[in-house]
């Protein structure tokens, strides 16, 4: 039995220790917003927050999660799509097929948490998720918009 703190609640799951966190989240916890795209830490579709850091959950064995570490998935980012990144995404119609977007949003949210006003170069450097539909320019615009929103919110 493995205990995981996911989106603020503690879940007990049955899984082999080497099972990637991604698949435990999707199959045992039952939250499917976090996506599988490559399984080898290349695409970022599986990005979740582990103690506030963006991590690629496909490449983290569930046994590597320490007791007490907090996992946040896209479903737990905000209760009502109110995170500035989610709001910016909706305003700019960032997603196309949307499959990569949970990971994009989680990566963007983690970046803004660490660096509320990233430069364009920093955004390009830090957001390495793959989007095959090609939403990158709206992702860039979305992060900028969320960063502005964040400032207004603090004001």
């Amino acid at each position: 039995m493995i205990r995981l703190n996911v989106n603020g609640s503690v879940r007990e799951v049955e899984a082999e220790p080497d099972t990637p966190l991604l698949w435990v989240i999707r199959e045992q916890v039952g939250l499917t917003g976090t996506k599988y795209g490559c399984g080898i830490a290349q695409c970022g579709a599986c990005t979740v927050h582990l103690d506030g850091q963006a991590v690629r959950s496909c490449s983290l064995p569930v046994s590597s999660i320490e007791p007490g570490q907090k996992i946040v998935t896209i479903e737990g980012l905000s209760p009502d799509r109110s995170h500035p990144v989610q709001k910016a995404w909706a305003e700019l119609d960032v997603p196309q097929c949307g499959f990569c977007q949970s990971g994009m949003i989680m990566a963007a949210a983690a970046l803004l948490a660490q660096k509320p006003k990233p430069s364009e170069a920093e955004i390009r450097q830090e957001i390495t998720n793959i989007c095959r539909c090609g939403t990158y320019n709206r992702v860039l615009a979305g992060i900028n918009l969320a960063a502005q929103g964040g400032e207004t919110g603090r004001g």
């Binding site: 896209i74 119609d93 997603p95 949307g98 499959f99």
Partner: peptide, 27 residues
């Protein structure tokens, strides 16, 4: 106009084929 299918793609609630769950389903 804005897309009709955006918000579900921002909170993980959009169900794709790989996300489907049916009662008694195997993989």
């Amino acid at each position: 106009v804005q897309r009709l299918d955006t918000v579900e793609k921002t909170d993980g609630s959009q169900v794709y084929g790989i996300d489907l769950k049916l009662p008694g389903m195997l993989n």
